[in-house]
Each structure stands twice: as C-alpha cells, then as structure tokens.
Design a protein around this nucleic acid. Structure first.
Lengths: 325, 325
DNA sequence: TTGTAAGCGTTATCAA
DNA sequence: TTGATAACGCTTACAA
C-alpha cells in the first residue's frame, strides 16, 4: 500500500504538504500542488481512512439499520440514502438488528438511520444520551439527537376517502391491521371522513386483520356471507386488499363491478393488480433521512418530527360512479 | 468516548493487558481477566475501530457493490451477504457504482462482492493485480483474487424444457433477451432440448426482446397475427412473459387454455400471476458469495468459477396435457 | 510557502 | 502474568 510518505518523498515535499494539498488547503504553492496531485495519480495513492479518522475523529460513515428483507420498498429507501450519502462523500454501512448496537457507535459511524421496529426505545434513549445522532423512521420519539421521520398516514388516508366519497361510494367496509400508530391513524382518517360527510358506518363492517394477505382473504370470505355487500372494502394495507380481491374473484364476485377495493402502500403486487392505493415516496424519504442525519451530524440540532406526505394512486379496483339524484 | 486507557486505569492494569483480555489471549490471569471484563461493561467500553484497524491493517468490513435498485431480489442477496458477514463479525458496506472504486481498497474494505454490470473488467483486473479479493456475480472472469459466481442458466432452462416436453408441449415459440452470456445459455438449452427430442422449431417462432415487459407485450401481439398459435411461448425472463400474458388476455386469448407461457427469474409479479418460471436462490447466493469472499480474505485462494443451480417452479400458466396417441 | 513533530487509540514486541 | 514502548498513517500546530 502506498502511503502519504511515499508520495511526499517522490514529490520531494513533506507529508504535511501532501496532506494540505489533498485536503484543499490554501497554504501551498500552485506548482507544488500540481506536482503532488500528479504523483498521487501516478502512484494511485489512496489515503488510509483509519489513519485519517483516528486523527480527525470523523469516520464519514453512516449506518442504516433494518431487518425486514421481505419488504421490497426497502431497496428504494436504501437507494435514497445511498444517493445522498455518497453525494456528500459519506459511506453507507448497512446492518440488521444483530449488528445494530455494535455499530451505533461514534468511533464507527457518525450517526444512523433506524428502520427497525425491534430496536427498543431504551436503546435509542441511551444512544441519544451519548449524543449519537439518529433518524428514526416510522416511529415518533421526542428526544435530543434523535429526529423522527414518519408518513402522514392520516392525511393520505383521508384524501383517499374524500376521493372515494366524491366518486359516489356510500357503503363502506374496513379491514384494519395490527395495532400501532400507523394503523390507528388510518382508521381515524376513515372514520372522520365518514362522520363529516354524515355517512353511516355499521360496526359489522369493521374487520380486524394482521396486514397479511391471508387475513384479507379470510375476511373477504366472511364479508361475502352477509346479505348485501358494501360498495367498497377499504383495507389498511395492500397485502390484505390483494387477499380480499383474490377471495372475491374466486367466488365470481367482480372487482370493481360488484365491489370495489383499495389498499395502502403501493407494492409491486398492487401495481400488478391495478389496485387503487396510497403510494409512499420511499426513495425520497430515504434521501431526506440521510440529509437530515448529515445535517444533524454537522450540528444542525434539528430534532422535530417530520411528516412525509403520501399520495393517492387511483387505479382500476375503484370506479367513479354515476351518482343518482 | 471511553478508551482502553480509561479501562486500564480503573482496573489498575496496563492498556496492553486490557487489549489482551479483549482479544481473548491466554497470557492473562483469570482474576485480572474478570476484573477487566467487568470494568468494560461498567464503562460501556467500545474499542475504537480506527485505532484497531490502523494497527492491525485489518478492517473487518466487506463491500457490496450494486446499482440496479429496481430489481427486488437484490434485497434477498443483501440479506444473504449480511447474515453471513455478521455471523463472522464483519461489517457490510454497501455502495453504488459511483462509490465503488474509492471503497475497493484494502485500507477500507477487505474485499468486495460485485453485482454491477457497469463496473469495467479493466477495473476488476487492476484490483486483482492489487491482490484485492473479489467475488463477481453473474459474470465469468478468470483471474487471481477474483472468483465468479454465476447462475447455471443452461441446466435450469434445460430442466424446464424437459418438463414441458414431458407435459406434452410440441409447438414452441421463444422470446430471447438482450445479448449476453445468460441469454445465450438460455436459448441454447431451449434449442438443445428440442433437437434432442426431435421437435421441429420454426424460425418464425423465434423473437428477440429486450427483457422488458413491453417487448413481451409487443411480441405477443405479433405472434397473434399468425394463423395457428404455438402451444407455448417460452420467454427468457419473467418481465417479457408477463407482458405477453397481458397481451394475450387483452385479446381474449386464455392462458394457459389457449396458449401457455413461462418465464425465468421468479419475480414478485411472477408469483402474483402464478407464472411457471425458474427460481433463483438469491438469499443463498448472497450467503455463498460472502462465505467465499471471507474464505479468500483468509487466504483460501479459491478462484474457480462457481455455478449455482436454479430450480423450475411449475405454476398455473402451463399445464400437464393429455398426450394423444 | 514549507517542514518538524506530536498525537489520535490500538496492538505487538520484548523485557521484567 | 504483566507492563513499557514503539509503531500503524494521518493531520495540525507551530516553527522556519
């Protein structure tokens, strides 16, 4: 490995001068600068980053922590993080729940983006006490050195509801997911919209699923037992919506002609099935997370929760109905 | 940040002893060992990895290089790599084409797994000359410090063909993809199977696509112009197969009743559509790649190309036909 | 404008 | 079984 001393000798200057050139400092003559730069290229000199970071205490690396490899959209988040990080010359370290605590350490990474439900709040609080900068996705925590980035579930679900009501839907059914902030917000938006438009919602049309396709399938089967179907089945995520659609179609019930269905997430499968849903800007939230993290690493001290808006994606499992009289 | 000296002082030993304890060396008394370990926990001591790696020249980090964030299966590969790497206490650094050269550097990473078509062979050869260990996915290169891991396209496609022929198919059409090793192997397997079973293949039933859904759609439209449809359309990947299915169904041609379709890759969309295809063990190849890489970092010197087998996934876009007479 | 030298936190060598 | 010391490659005062 060629080191700074080698470059210095070849260029007949001191290591300090080479360092100054490479770090763009102005205290070095133009001629020397050029010569040093040339030698660096010639020898293909790559600074040893351990030496550098040992000296400066700055590792120029951030951590992304996640573990659910079944969610395809994580790749989009990674892309967003990666793009921003590399644009600022930061490296990106990726780890799963196991590695998390070890690498959430200033000697190793300057900060982290956490998308890992399994990571306990208490660990986060401890790291916050160590002044380790973090961006937490999909979870609201108020603490110094820690900024939350969450999807604005309420507004998105509400917007979808308004569109549905405008399109003429009046008889709603709802499948909720496992309890959590997201789930509650989506359901609240659903109910608020109905209440405000004075649309009746029968308790028997509320179902509780687990965000998995199977639960949607199962619930749709239940729903079909009732005498008159609702106009539309609103699902708290795409997987359940897709399960429901499969169940309907298996029984010869057409979507959207006989019953409409909508979801939340905009997965690949949702695109495939032309499902009306809410789309979350994953690339963008990764990018934003990285940006806020680096800003806080640089001392911005911005710890306010940030809400990202999601957009309604109207597709073919819902229709604009002719409204009678 | 608490450092080794702090621990040493508190435990009333020298830094060297603490280091020996932490690195599991045997030259330290049991009593001291216990005391040191306790203090470490008490102070939550985390070794500074820059200092460590500067001294040892060993960074315990590997690099994964890729860029096509649209391929969902990359996440599975990452998971495989991640699981193996962390089991061996290695960190995983992820970067896209831009960052690649910078981090493919022994001072920063001990080796890399390359899944990035854009990375030039010449860069790889240069790194190979620097004795930087690499695992190259989906590309065969023979060079020291460099091991290729490729899917055995030929065998998998061949196996699929044998099953199709056994199921009674006789009139085949084929959509190929953009030229490359993979593409050639898949087509050769297709032809060899037909030849060996003395099944005629008309040149007019060969089509050339670009691996995108649209090209499959377009080609299926063309195919429908001919007087008698083939039994089955074999596609070099899933995207084109899905495009073709959409085209057929748009024209009221039923799959698989009127024509069968199969693909290659086993994407999420393929699962969704119940497409018969070839499934690639992505988690496993990520895991294997990491394993081979770490072994070579440890000096195994295993640079032979490794072929991973893929499996046929028989689903609902093909059928076992009754074979007449 | 350039060079000298100290020091970042760790480990390895060697002596005690 | 333990400790003193040098060294890893780099940056940064400060001196020249």
């Amino acid at each position: 490995m060629v080191k700074i001393k080698d470059v210095a000798e070849r260029a007949q200057v001191s290591p300090a001068t080479v360092s100054n050139v490479l770090n763009g400092r102005s205290n070095v003559g133009e001629e020397t600068r050029q010569r040093v730069l040339e030698i660096c290229k010639e020898l293909d000199y790559q600074p040893n980053l351990s030496g550098k970071s040992l000296k400066t205490g700055d590792n120029h690396t951030i951590l992304f922590n996640f573990s659910d490899f079944d969610r395809e959209f994580y790749l989009k988040i990674i892309q967003g993080i990666s793009d921003y990080a590399y644009s600022k010359d930061y490296a990106l370290l990726i780890c799963t729940s196991k590695g998390s605590e070890k690498y959430m350490n200033k000697t190793f990474t300057s900060g982290c983006i956490m998308l890992e439900g399994k990571c306990s709040n208490s660990l986060l609080m401890r790291k916050s006490a160590e002044k380790y900068p973090m961006i937490i996705l999909d979870r609201v925590i108020e603490a110094p050195y820690l900024k939350s980035l969450v999807i604005d579930n309420y507004s998105a679900q509400r917007e979808l509801m308004e569109e549905l009501i405008r399109a003429g839907y009046r008889k709603f059914a709802y499948i909720s997911g496992v309890d959590g902030e997201d789930t509650q917000q989506r359901y609240r938006a659903f109910r608020d919209a109905l209440d405000e438009h004075q649309i009746e919602f029968k308790r028997e049309n509320y179902f509780s699923g687990d965000y998995r396709e199977k639960s949607g399938y199962r619930i749709a089967k239940l729903l079909m037992l009732s005498e008159n179907l609702p106009d539309i089945l609103v699902c708290a995520n795409d997987n359940m919506a897709i399960g429901a659609i499969k169940a309907f179609r298996a029984e010869g019930i057409r979507v959207p002609e006989d019953i409409s269905v909508c979801g939340f997430d905009d997965t690949e499968a949702a695109k495939m099935l032309e499902l009306t849903t809410v789309t979350i800007p994953n690339y963008e939230r990764g990018y934003l997370a990285a940006q806020y993290l680096l800003e806080n690493i640089d001392g911005a001290e911005n710890y306010d929760t940030f809400r990202i808006s999601a957009k309604v994606k109207w597709r073919k499992t819902t229709v604009r109905k002719a409204i009678d009289g």
